[in-house]
Amino acid sequence: MPMPKEENVFGDIFGGWVMAHVDLAGGLEAMRHSRGRVATVAVNAFQFHQPISSGDLVSFYAEVVNLGRTSMTVAVQVFAERHPSNPVFVKVTEATLTYVALDADGNKRDVPRENA
C-alpha cells in the first residue's frame, strides 16, 4: 500500500514508485524461475492506465512469458483495490521486462529448462 510520502501534489502515486515495485515483482518471478540471481536488462513496455492514489491497496502479478537460454521476459500486471467499503478492482499498470540469469560472479548462466 503506497503511503502519502509517495504521492505528488495531486494525490497520485509517483510513477517511479510504481516502476520500482514492478521491477521487484518481475525480478522475484525471474529469480524463482531461474533459481538464483538475476539482473534487469530491459524494460520492454510500460503502460500506466490509471493513477494510483494513496490508500489504494496495490497488487502486482508477474509471470514469465518468454524464455531464452540465459534470459527471460516477465509480464507484470498491477491492480488497485479502491473504496474498502465497496471494493472496486482496477488494472492500473502493465509492463514487460527482461531479466538475465547470473552466476555468483555476475556472469550470464543458463536458465534451468525444467521450469519451462
Rank of each mutant, 00 (worst) to 15 (best):
F48D: 09
T96E: 15
T73S: 14
G36P: 04
P84I: 00
H49I: 02
T96F: 06
S59L: 13
S54Q: 12
L57Y: 08
S53T: 07
R32I: 12
A39I: 08
H33M: 10
R35L: 12
A75M: 08
V65D: 03
M72L: 10
V41R: 00
D23K: 00
L28V: 12
R82C: 00
Q47G: 08
Y61F: 11
N44M: 11
S85F: 09
F48H: 10
G68L: 04
F48I: 09
R82L: 03
G26Q: 09
D56S: 03
V76D: 02
I52M: 03
L57C: 00
T93K: 01
R37Y: 13
F79V: 07
R82I: 03
F60R: 06
R82A: 01
G26P: 05
H83R: 14
G26N: 08
V74G: 08
T98G: 02
A95G: 02
K91C: 08
G68F: 03
F60T: 04
Q47R: 14
V22E: 04
S53P: 00
V41I: 11
G27H: 09
S34N: 08
K91T: 07
A25L: 10
F79K: 08
A62S: 10
N86T: 10
R37E: 15
T73Y: 09
V38M: 02
F89H: 12
E94L: 05
G68N: 03
T70P: 01
F46Y: 15
T93I: 03
V58R: 04
L67A: 03
A39F: 07
V76K: 00
V38T: 13
G68I: 00
G26H: 09
A62V: 02
A25P: 09
V88R: 15
F46G: 03
A45E: 15
R35M: 10
V43E: 05
Q50S: 14
Q50D: 15
A45L: 09
V43G: 00
T73H: 11
M31G: 08
R37C: 12
A39E: 05
V58F: 01
G36H: 08
Y61T: 07
V76N: 03
R69A: 13
V90P: 08
A39T: 13
F48R: 08
Q47Y: 13
I52Q: 03
G55C: 10
V22L: 06
A25Y: 11
P87C: 09
E81T: 08
L28M: 15
V78M: 04
N44T: 07
S53R: 15
L28K: 14
I52C: 01
V58M: 01
T73G: 12
Q47L: 13
L24A: 10
V58W: 04
F48A: 11
D23P: 04
V74H: 09
F60D: 09
G55S: 12
A42S: 12
D56A: 02
G36A: 07
A95I: 05
G26M: 12
S59P: 02
H83Y: 13
N86R: 11
P51V: 05
